[in-house]
Design a protein around this nucleic acid. Structure first.
Lengths: 192, 192
DNA sequence: TCCTATCCAGACAGGTCTGTCTATTTGCAG
DNA sequence: CTGCAAATAGACAGACCTGTCTGGATAGGA
């Protein structure tokens, strides 16, 4: 998961920043429903009234957490050096390996959140939808530029592989995942 | 998700069976932490004392739910007609399509549960581990018999694809998944 | 200096959660 | 018919949850 949140911060309040950082850590490592407001404000060293001054409700905090993770991921992709489509696809998929070997991996925050939010019309689920659409679209356009004959299908397969390997890194063996990412790219992309 | 639980039932009590069926439905569609004991016993039409007579705690009920889903999945694979390895692999992966087009798909129950159980030493997580090991091993042995040069790697990729496509069916488009399953097999298995 | 915005500490209400307990009823085996 | 196992309804304790509120501390700009 992206952790460089404290830097480019939106919202501009030390207390708010501490709240969001603490919530991000706790929601990610322990689950959303499992973590209460009292716990977050205690570990952030913030009063309850201050919390409700910055976030109208817990759900709003959750939504902010999800949207920030989304933004950080997109920013990281935007910051990748310009390179040919095929190399760019490898670089994007390579972010999986980077996230996973760092340690403390607890699965994809978006998939974990989706498991706790069954209502597809909820704001959290819609934010997750937006994230997934972005991911698919980025890959599809790169595949199109790379000359892939079925860019949308290949993009769907790459998204599925990403999700599956992120789960494998959480539940099975993180160390084996980078090799699997490379192997998957070999097999899913058209040989040239 | 497998729903033919009421038949081959272990535990042999009508109340217990009703409790487990109701819990399975609610845990799956709404999440585990989101569903309380009071809700389960109300919908199952069972008294609270009866519940705690059959299950020592809620966690025990959750574990029973996970283990039953695991058993149903393994039974379904065992019941597949005998066929050559490659066809058997297709049949196993084809269960994804079957599960997903049935409607009411809310994601893989094991991945959803894992999102809510961060502690890898918990009984629930260990049951999920066992399930994942079984899945990988079944595929690896079939791939070995099929002459795949790297059966373990290919099995890991197939497991990742399964997980990813099950998530795609939940969060993106269920209708597109069967075609993606077929396409993934084409690309991941060695061409013969 | 004073005013205002932000913050902290913590009580409180109203609800929900798990798990225990009492007291009663049902139904089947001997 | 008797006796026992299992079921019922529901109160209860103790903990935790979200969200509101009061009251006081702090700090920076006019």
């Amino acid at each position: 998961m992206d952790k460089t949140a404290s830097q480019n911060d939106t919202g501009a309040s030390a207390a708010r920043r501490r709240l969001l950082d603490t919530a991000t850590r706790l929601f990610y490592t322990e689950g959303i429903r499992a973590v209460g407001i009292d716990r977050i404000i205690a570990e952030a060293g913030v009063a309850k009234a201050t919390f409700y001054n910055h976030f109208p409700s817990k759900d709003d905090l959750v939504l902010t957490y999800i949207k920030e993770q989304d933004r950080l991921g997109r920013d990281a992709v935007s910051a990748l050096p310009e390179q040919p489509p095929r190399a760019m696809i490898s670089a994007i998929m390579g972010r999986i390996s980077a996230a996973v070997v760092a340690g403390g991996w607890r699965g994809c925050p978006f998939l974990n959140a989706a498991a706790e939010y069954p209502d597809p019309t909820s704001a959290v689920r819609q934010a997750i939808d937006a994230r997934r659409t972005w991911h698919h679209d980025v890959l599809r356009e790169l595949l199109l530029a790379d000359g892939d004959p079925t860019p949308s299908v290949t993009a769907s397969l790459l998204v599925a592989l990403s999700d599956g390997l992120l789960e494998a890194a959480y539940l099975d063996d993180p160390k084996g995942v980078p090799a699997l990412v490379a192997e998957a790219l070999e097999r899913l992309l058209v040989r040239r």
